[in-house]
Design a protein around this nucleic acid. Sequence first.
DNA 1: GAGTTTACTACATAAACTGTAGCGTGTCCC
DNA 2: GGGACACGCTACAGTTTATGTAGTAAACTC
Lengths: 103, 103
Amino acid sequence: MAKRVRGSRTGRPIMALLDLLGRRWVLRIVWELREQPKRFRELQDLIGASPTIVNGRLGELRLARLVELDPDSGYRLTALGKELLRLFLPLHVWSEKWAKALD
Amino acid sequence: MAKRVRGSRTGRPIMALLDLLGRRWVLRIVWELREQPKRFRELQDLIGASPTIVNGRLGELRLARLVELDPDSGYRLTALGKELLRLFLPLHVWSEKWAKALD
DNA sequence: GAGTTTACTACATAAACTGTAGCGTGTCCC
DNA sequence: GGGACACGCTACAGTTTATGTAGTAAACTC
């Protein structure tokens, strides 16, 4: 069986994924890594969360093989992480429409 | 300016959206509503969270116009919510691939 | 009017997050 | 060698947020 990332009581991958992504700062971290790798402190300053939690989330994302640490450049998305990001890119455009609808 | 859903300190819709979705149970609730409307208790039982938090999240989702309560059938996605869900559907397939990669 | 079903709330306990300070390692420079 | 710096990361007290159980109030059913 696949490594459980967390909370996948059901064992269904979609639930594990929703659980992983549905935790504070995780989506945001993936988003901030969309273009270039970022250093720990840089990431922390960008998102404005405590180092404790940034470190914790990066650990979970590394376990999930979505993020990796390259000593030379910093934290970056893995191939798997980039695939996931690609699925999320349409959100950017949609969010603008959504914001207008909320007016 | 658009109603802030929360934490959109920047005013950028994508950040507000990532913040809304990146809170425990929110993605899961949207996911559970993907097919039919669900009653409050039904939803609560399905996801296994406390009524306090289910109610709180539903309130936020209603403010964000992604979910609405139809007295006859229960909580359901709005047109906007369905659009968002459509963007998320590819996650289902991808999550299977991801789970295999974690083996 | 007693029993059900509904959405939702109160509240004490437990878990998670924050903010600040600081550790340990490596590297560069004199 | 020794000082300054950048790096990832950790400790910990204080605050915020979530949990779990119980229960409320309104609408319907018989």
